[in-house]
Design a protein around this nucleic acid. Sequence first.
DNA 1: CTAGGGGTACAC
DNA 2: GTGTACCCCTAG
Length: 368
Amino acid sequence: MPPLAAADAFLVLEYLAGNRRVPHPVFSALLAAPPPVTPHNSPRLRKGVALRALDLALSDSDAEASVLFLSARAVLAEPDLVSCFPDHLALCDDVVVLKRLVDAEWASLPASSLEAAADQIVGAGAPHTWANADQDTRRKLHLLVGESMEREILGKLGQDRSTDPQDDEVANAPSTSGANEADRAQQDDEAHLDRGNGNADHVQEDCAHRPQEPVEKTTDARVPKKPVTSASIKGKGIATSSHVTEQIAADNNKSHPVKGSKPSLMERNPTACAYEWDDSGDSEHERPQRKRQLPTYEREPRPLGPRPPFLNRTRKRWTEIEEKTLIEGVEKYGKGNWMQIKIAYPTVFAERSTVDLKDKFRNMERYH
DNA sequence: CTAGGGGTACAC
DNA sequence: GTGTACCCCTAG
């Protein structure tokens, strides 16, 4: 894997700085690692660093309140950091209140460039971005978000991508063509981006869940009798995310200039979701609005002994959309590349594991 | 990570 | 009871 470019490292660090679940020592190590990134490039990064220093000062559980308070005051008075804190923090004279104010500061951190860019592509800004994109940009956006998401976005715009011959050309190009390799390579980037978004929103704030329409039991989704041609993507050339993102950012800028002097592709996606590692939860109905408060990596230990059957997951029937997408994925990536398929359709398969995909396809082969 | 075996739930 | 759907476990 090639070393991270400074610009990419900055984007990652800027996001991580404001992610309170990333432990301070881990973040410090990342900050110290090459390529060097100056925290002064981004208000979020600066403030994240400052809040981490404050967190550290307030985190000694053994120390008395007065000691914590003095440590915190020292941080608040540091010349490099003082401009990052609002005045009322320095005026606060109670540790408990100060901790609450710090929590509020964490919660009010601005979105990172990555999140903001994702939002522009698949989030709230998507309709505007897509509506103003020319053919070339649209094709690149397609490569980034994937077919399912593109359909969703264009659906909102009242458009149909099937009328665009160029898109079809991209989608249907044979696996040996260079165009398709680029497709694959960029879809890899898309996948990475998507995962990043999910994580981002997990921490950031509300994440509007987009359930698939509850289509009842499929009647027409049929698996091809012959196993689908396996189109392995392993070993293909992979474009770096920075190449793709820079190009699209440039194109985006052309078609609709956005705020700031350095618009980025990686904008925030309020619709993306990530799930906590919690075996007991059914993610569909219990997603807190503000997730930034999550304090720790800890996870409920699984009870020992034999596990009662089907207590971990609720049984969820496959929708027609899921089945069709699975078939499409197998046609595209080949049977057996379940991880690739899951990554390629993160929204559709958000609640399906790779094993689920494999099992479902096996059942479809068996019984259809 | 994937394939395959096998258990349980559910509809008929 | 039977067939199917969904899920879990485990070996490679």
